[in-house]
Design a protein around this nucleic acid. Structure first.
Lengths: 224, 224
DNA sequence: TCATATTCTGACTGACCGGTCACTTTATGG
DNA sequence: CCATAAAGTGACCGGTCAGTCAGAATATGA
């Protein structure tokens, strides 16, 4: 049983590859039809496995598949945050913020299926009455919020933004980014090939100004 | 067949009363378990009618019941907007805005079940592949957004807020109000009797400042 | 090559649920 | 009081689907 440099045997690597294929199929279908609307038969069919095989890889069944997808999503968001705020070398805070917003747009553009699943299923899960499910979600969501809250707290210390609970601000940032992103999705068709326009710098700039300076004209900034 | 001053016979009034009871039961159950999780048997049981009777009042079945609930929600929101922006007699715009935000909080507090249904089901419906359903939703949502866009456009003309597409701003307002409201819901239990704290003036003030002035400390306002 | 272990498979099952309809109950009004 | 109409009812039906499992296929390694 030889192992490669990453410490995985061929069997283990193949296993991961297959698991990943199943997750891809499930992600597509959940995004298209929603969690309740997609069936395990469809997922198995699209992944080119028998339905029973899904249970070798996800003994917890449909629920576990959904949670695995959300794991990917939250991992991606945390990485994105660290990437956006990681290497700021005294650049103006507005630029950092705009870069973060822009990266989020880009992420949701590239991972549009994950975005759809987030939009369609997250609240359903958060307010479910399955305690275990709720606990998982609160924990995952806090992980992301805390990751974002760190850089925000630093910005407050530097005086770039007003004092407020950083988790609250982190939450409001996501709310705004998600909400603005949703507006850009075509309402009628999920089938259209590229459902999101490629995110433009202009839109990231608008949202950044909205968040940093609000909509009042009292203290208008460099708005055109 | 005598009629009362509102033009409805006793039969018609009773019919409306019963329909309303069914909607109440359905609203509770959809809020608790979500649309997919609630069953017509439960709804009929809670409304104290036979299942078949539901179909006398809602020939379209489960879907029609959900749409009727959303009708109530959107009607309520439109009324709330008109109420909030209707009688402004040269009061400072920030006060008007705070009143609106506060009214929204109050509305969602009193109609918490409607808020839950909105949060859990709206996106599912908007991105459904049932064209008819989508069309209904786009139309209803636009009705609310347009109602709000009117006063916002006036505020722009008066110079109270920056120039931007009023529908966009209307959308961002709802996104922020909904997002802030969600934060105040207890994560773990939908069962707790009063799930939302009674909305406080302080919170409406915070969100109003957030929207009007943003979070930058460059042009900080009267923040404590 | 073959015995054994592992993995894959899809027909099957049992539970569930939206919707129907023949029948019962209630209301109407002559 | 009764004949007729209207409204209410819940057992039933057909379809769906998550999850199971006995057996097939494949991999392992002696």
């Amino acid at each position: 049983m030889n192992t490669t440099e990453n410490g995985l045997s061929r069997r283990e690597r193949e296993r991961l590859t297959r698991q990943s294929a199943m997750l891809s199929a499930a992600t597509e279908l959940f995004a298209e039809k929603g969690y309740a609307g997609a069936t395990l038969d469809e997922i198995a069919l699209r992944a080119e496995f028998g339905k029973g095989t899904l249970y070798n890889y996800f003994p917890g069944g449909k629920k576990q598949i959904l949670l695995a997808i959300f794991d990917q999503l939250y991992d991606g968001l945390c990485a994105l945050i660290e990437d956006s705020f990681g290497t700021e070398e005294n650049e103006p805070f507005r630029d950092t913020m705009e870069a973060f917003v822009s990266n989020c747009f880009q992420f949701f553009y590239e991972q549009f299926n994950l975005f759809m699943i987030l939009v369609k299923e997250a609240e359903q899960l958060i307010f479910s009455d399955d305690q275990e499910r709720v606990a998982y979600f609160v924990q995952q969501q806090n992980r992301v919020l805390q990751t974002l809250a760190g850089p925000l707290r630093e910005a407050m210390n530097r005086g770039d933004i007003r004092e407020m609970p950083p988790e609250l601000l982190a939450n409001m940032l996501f709310v705004n980014i998600k909400g603005y992103q949703m507006r850009r999705c075509p309402r009628n068709l999920t089938q259209s090939k590229k459902p999101l326009e490629n995110p433009s710098k202009e839109q990231a700039g608008f949202l950044t100004d909205f968040i940093l300076y609000g909509v009042s004209s009292d203290n208008a900034v460099e708005v055109t």
